[in-house]
Design a protein around this nucleic acid. Structure first.
Lengths: 185, 185
DNA sequence: GTTAGCATGTAAGGAGTTACATGATTTT
DNA sequence: AAAATCATGTAACTCCTTACATGCTAAC
């Protein structure tokens, strides 16, 4: 039973502190990297389900003057979050990126493990592309060919990115508790 | 009302000739570029809906000895296919790739038009990335930063790909009626 | 005092998935 | 004769969407 991306994202954001739905949605759309702006029609029912499941709890003290339901992550939610973050599938682009955005909550070994798994998956995918090209190259038209070639080069690009990150990760001794001390751009 | 990707893919494949469900599924998984293997639980109901909508028709003459329902594209389906191929949204990765795989069915001008629209969309997305980095760079951690930077470079990669293709397209005079001059089956 | 933005929800639907159920034919 | 693969379908579910409905508060 796989957690939905939304649940994982909500739990990860709530680790920073209690938040209400409207605010969560804004954070989902902006600071959580290049993620989709989820609709309220998904978010509020999701928060309800998570509360019933005991992953989040409503904070009794309302944050502001308005009628709003601020949620905080529960201890069960914390456990669940780490479990899902670490042992989830690596073959889903969006989910991997989401988990990557929460890497700061994982120990170095888990981060490297996840990136290695992702790298292996991408390499397998690349191989499939190559085989597919070999077996179908006489039957497919130039546009499909171009599509596959571009897909391969994107895949290679992603692999190089992961390799660099893995190297960086291995190079640092510290558990990297905070972002970094350098600016990175 | 947007056609589902699956409908579009089915129509495009049926343009090559009548096919039954099982065969369509194999083609979807293999020769149609890097596309997902759709499940029968999607495919068969989809074929049924499309038949009721008059986009495809069952060919009475069964292809082989087995019990199987071969479908062919109807004239309405053809019209619909071209319309959807040309006037669809350009901001959905998977859908754009799908349509790209059927580019041979479009005139040169439409191909260029679609690629230009896609390019504009990607450039806008890139700008959003940059602005997002500007406004949030002090608040986000290094992993999110890396994610955004990688997203930007992937975006740029896609833009370069499109630019090359547009140039190639503009350089050829012929309407490029067929894939190439080689055998095709 | 009205518009803009904050805030929470429900209902219906879309586009798929997995798991199940069935049977026919070809290969070993 | 058994196993693999061809072939078609249904039921229940997932995870999201859009559109609607409501009302409060801050700013202009």
């Amino acid at each position: 039973m796989q957690t939905s991306s939304l649940e994982l994202a909500v739990l990860g954001l709530l680790k920073e502190g209690p938040m209400h739905g409207y605010e969560l949605r804004k954070r989902l759309a902006t600071t959580l990297g290049p993620f989709r702006a989820v609709s309220y029609g998904s978010l509020y029912p999701c928060l309800g389900r998570m509360e019933r499941a005991g992953l989040v709890a409503e904070t009794s003290g309302a944050i502001g003057p308005r009628r709003r339901h601020a949620y905080q992550i529960s201890p069960e939610g914390e456990t669940y979050f780490f479990q899902q973050l670490e042992h989830g599938a690596v073959y889903d682009n969006d989910r991997f990126r989401l988990r990557f955005a929460f890497f700061r909550y994982l120990p170095k070994e888990s981060r490297i493990g996840l990136m290695e798994r992702r790298k292996v998956y991408l390499q397998e995918k690349l191989l499939e592309f190559k085989e597919s090209l070999q077996t179908t190259k006489d039957r497919i038209d130039s546009y499909t060919m171009s599509l596959i070639n571009h897909g391969m080069s994107s895949c290679e690009h992603d692999i190089r990115w992961l390799e660099e990150l893995i190297d960086q990760e291995r190079a640092t001794d510290e558990p990297r508790r905070r972002p970094t001390r350098r600016k990175q751009a």
